[in-house]
């Protein structure tokens, strides 16, 4: 099952990953991060993640630390 690992402590809430994910699997979380804004979370209930790592490549803070592709 493809998935990503987000380190919320590093997330600066720029939300570039939300726009970049082709499957729209990243969204704002309920947690407030270092920039006093909501961090992001990975939400893939339907197992749609492609493991493409686009999110990790666009993240300027390397908050997306791991991408596993099991397709």
């Amino acid at each position: 099952m493809s998935h990503i690992k987000i380190n919320e402590a590093k997330c600066k809430s720029c939300y570039l990953c939300i726009d970049a994910c082709p499957k729209k699997l990243i969204q704002k979380s309920d947690n407030i991060g270092s920039m006093a804004q909501y961090t992001v979370e990975f939400n893939d209930t339907k197992n749609q993640c492609l493991g493409c790592a686009i999110c990790a490549m666009v993240c300027p803070d390397m908050a997306i630390e791991e991408v596993v592709n099991d397709k």
């Binding site: 600066k12 720029c14 300027p60 803070d61 099991d70």
Partner: peptide, 20 residues
């Protein structure tokens, strides 16, 4: 298969201090 992880040439547990 792991297709992305933090590069080896990035220091462990460092945080980028650039603006969001």
């Amino acid at each position: 298969m792991q297709v992305f992880n933090v590069p080896k040439s990035i220091k462990k547990d460092c945080t980028f201090t650039f603006c969001a």
